[in-house]
Amino acid sequence: MNYLTLSLALIFVIIPLLLSKTLKLGLEKDTTIAAVRSIIQLLAVGYLLHFVFETENIVFIFLMVLLMIGAATQNARRKGKAIKGITWKLFLTFLFIEILTQSILLGLSIIPSTAQYIIPISGMIIGNSMVLSILFLNRFISEVKDHVEQTELILSLGGTPKQAIHTQLVQSIKSSTIPTIESQKTIGLVQLPGMMSGQIIAGADPVQAVQFQLLILFILLTTAVITSIMLGYLSYPSLFNNRMQLLKLEEK
């Protein structure tokens, strides 16, 4: 594909803009912003990756991954503002997951240790971890708000904060990881996963593409479960003070 054909693809941006205008849907501004942002961001990433792949310098790989973790943290922290210190808790979670998965992938030579593999796979892992952490935080905060009475009941009977929040914590971990597990049950039946489709279009052998897709899916299972558990256990203590009292969640 070249830039001329790509510019023809703008037709697919103009269609929703026209529809929005005629039907007064009010989506013009957001659609334009979305289109412009994706053009700038993806092109920038494309050239950046091109540069990183060329140089094959380990420092650039580190910097890229750090950038992804930083961006993911920035994005997810807005959902968790009610929890004290959420920024570094998210950062630590993403960092841990990245280190764990890459240690397994590279340590067992499942993937070659080149930027071409490490960076896209890191992107998928961190991106999914970010989505999971947003799901988890949304659910956990509403569980905590809905069960203040039960939490204080357990505290009042001499339970520890961990005991008092346990049900809500487990419930939030479960409900945030279920979509990941469920979606894998039907995968391939209706919709081909994005990465696999991309590889096939780019000319890769479908079986090879499937193998990679499976690898990613399995990594995402680990990512989902560890993100919720780790974030949960890092987050719940800041809901209480040192007198084991449940603090009020700040309103946003």
Binding site: Q150, L153, I154, L155, S156, L157, G158, R243, M244
Partner: peptide, 20 residues
């Protein structure tokens, strides 16, 4: 210690909250 305190000073509130 808060745990020790709460076992010593028991409370039954009007709302009578229950766990599921």
């Amino acid at each position: 210690n808060p745990v020790e305190l709460r076992r010593k000073v028991g409370i039954a509130l009007q709302s009578a909250a229950m766990i599921n």
